[in-house]
């Protein structure tokens, strides 16, 4: 049976206590929320923390509340709870849909919104046990220096595989980050870096505590689409988060489209540039956005299905997402 490496364990009851522990133990501690991403990576010996700080007792980080006309979701809220929450389903169905699409029922009961947002990047070379990961030379995200996907690459191309990130990025949601004696709020897009190893802008010791949704009414419609070969279990091969605000005569006033799983970070498209001030089904504008999307997407042979096909699907799904916004 595959087992966890040994580690010390702490389960603080408050954010303050958690941030203090993270501060004290520097880079040698890791946070454990739902564990659906961290536990497998520990079992594969992808990380060997000295201390695991479990957040499950920090009740303040769980649940959905309303503040200043905005929904605020605790980072520890389970994906199942996000998917089922009446207010989220009513105002931000795309987020509920994204959460409901993740993994399996069991994984959604355990996995948290915060965990999905900070999900480690994925790559079929990297996501193997250390025996096989290192057979034929370790990769740079592991203990080596090479990339086995893009030969000669200086960077790691592991894939950002979060389903909630593209939606929340498209909606313009924000994240509250707390660390020992410090706190900040950043837009979701700013959390990600297009680098498979250094994929987050999260500072050492920082804890993601809350997700702040935009004021209700900021967008008229939101959409989420996900490409994968099976209706369950699978991580996205591509996903699209989109939101639109219409002006008079259904002219696009504001639009936001973000692609996921086609790079090491969610890719925010310049949708406003192509579609702002136009009808959303303007054929020329849609075609231009599709071409732009395909250019922004860099699917590589490091997950299921051929990357050529996945690139083709970027165009199909971009168009479908726009259709969904008016469906």
């Amino acid at each position: 049976m595959l087992r966890l490496p040994e580690f010390e364990y702490a389960a603080p009851a408050t954010v303050g206590e958690a941030t203090r522990l993270m501060h004290e133990r520097g880079g040698k501690a890791m946070l454990l929320a739902g564990g659906t991403d961290l536990i497998p990576s520990l079992k594969r010996r992808q990380y060997l923390p000295e201390l695991v700080v479990s957040l499950h007792k920090v009740e303040a980080m769980r649940g959905v509340r309303e503040a200043d006309g905005r929904l605020v979701i605790g980072a520890l809220t389970s994906l199942d709870a996000v998917a089922a929450h009446p207010a989220i389903r009513a105002s931000w169905p795309a987020l509920a849909k994204a959460a409901a699409s993740i993994g399996t029922p069991q994984l959604r009961n355990q996995g948290t919104l915060g965990g999905n947002l900070l999900l480690d990047t994925r790559c079929t070379v990297y996501n193997q046990l250390e025996e096989w990961r290192d057979a034929g030379g370790s990769c740079m995200k592991s203990t080596g220096v090479k990339c086995h996907i893009v030969l000669g690459s200086k960077r790691c191309w592991a894939i950002s595989s979060s389903d909630t990130a593209p939606v929340l990025a498209a909606l313009g949601a924000e994240l509250r980050l707390v660390r020992h004696g410090d706190e900040r709020t950043v837009p979701v897009v700013a959390m990600y870096r297009d680098d498979g190893i250094d994929y987050l802008t999260l500072q050492p010791g920082e804890v993601l505590t809350e997700v702040l949704l935009p004021p209700v009414g900021k967008w008229d419609r939101s959409a989420f689409l996900k490409l994968r070969r099976r209706g369950t279990f699978d991580f996205p091969l591509l996903n699209v988060g989109a939101a639109v605000k219409f002006g008079a005569d259904r002219i696009v006033e504001r639009i936001s489209v973000v692609l996921g799983a086609v790079g090491s970070a969610p890719q925010a498209l310049d949708a406003q540039k192509f579609l702002g001030g136009k009808q959303i089904d303007d054929a020329v504008a849609v075609a231009a956005l599709q071409a732009h999307a395909a250019k922004r997407a860099t699917p590589l042979p490091n997950t299921d299905s051929s990357h050529v096909w996945r690139k083709r699907m970027v165009q199909v799904y971009t168009a479908r997402a726009l259709k969904e916004l008016v469906a």
């Binding site: 536990i39 479990s54 499950h56």
Partner: peptide, 16 residues
Amino acid sequence: LVDGKPMLSCLLPAAQ
């Protein structure tokens, strides 16, 4: 089942 919800015992440290 953990408090009635299906969960994966392989991903849960017993302490949690």
